[in-house]
């Protein structure tokens, strides 16, 4: 600080405009540095601390790391997972509505790939992974799309059934019977639900 004041004093004797510019520049620099320090204040592990201390045995850290990851998975916010699942299902229903507006096999293949992408994303969601029925509904919908997409154009009723499947994925308290019923309805609409050899 003393050095700065001395510099300023020397300068002020010569050029007031220059003094003002320098002052502003120093102020900006100081604010910028303060902001950086503020951002770095939390959980700071200084590099030189790391170097001064003995080198950590990295393999010994593996166990702790594994525990931390497991803990994180345990603490995963269930509400957030359900919300994500619901958002994906709703978006899939919107896309199915768009799909039903087109009678074009090329576009059907695009829409089918997008819907399969949604199902794959749902299958990665922990709330689906932990629910046996919802997981099976995902597999059923995926099979139906994959097995029938190149056969013929999906009818309006068939697309409605796919929508129903996604609605089930967004519903609570599903029973095994809901899955069986969806399977029956899909077959009644002449959709293959599993490969012929099964």
């Amino acid at each position: 600080m003393a050095k700065v004041q001395q510099e300023l004093w020397q300068k002020s004797c010569t050029d007031p405009q220059d003094l003002f510019n320098r002052l502003m520049f120093m102020k900006m620099e100081a604010i910028s540095k303060d902001l950086e320090n503020l951002e770095m204040r939390t959980d700071r592990v200084a590099g030189h601390d790391l170097l001064n201390s003995r080198w950590k045995d990295l393999s010994a850290c593996e166990e702790t790391k594994h525990k931390a990851i497991t803990r994180k998975a345990d603490q995963a916010d269930a509400t957030e997972l359900l919300r994500e699942c619901s958002d994906i299902s709703k978006r899939a229903i919107e896309i199915l509505s768009k799909w039903s507006e087109f009678q074009d096999i090329k576009l059907q293949i695009q829409f089918a790939a997008v819907i399969v992408g949604k199902i794959d994303r749902l299958k990665r969601n922990a709330s689906i992974q932990s629910d046996d029925i919802k997981r099976k509904i995902c597999t059923l919908l995926r099979n139906v799309i994959r097995l029938n997409v190149a056969e013929d154009l999906f009818s309006q009723d068939q697309i409605e059934l796919l929508k129903k499947g996604f609605m089930l994925l967004d519903a609570d308290g599903l029973k095994r019977e809901d899955l069986f019923e969806l399977n029956r309805e899909l077959r009644k609409e002449n959709l293959m639900t599993m490969p012929a050899w099964e």
């Binding site: 590099g47 790391l50 950590k56 990295l58 790391k65 990851i69 994180k72």
Partner: peptide
Amino acid sequence: IQLLQMVKTGMEGC
């Protein structure tokens, strides 16, 4: 490389 590995391990919660 070793230092960067330590940084990574630190970020992963060790």
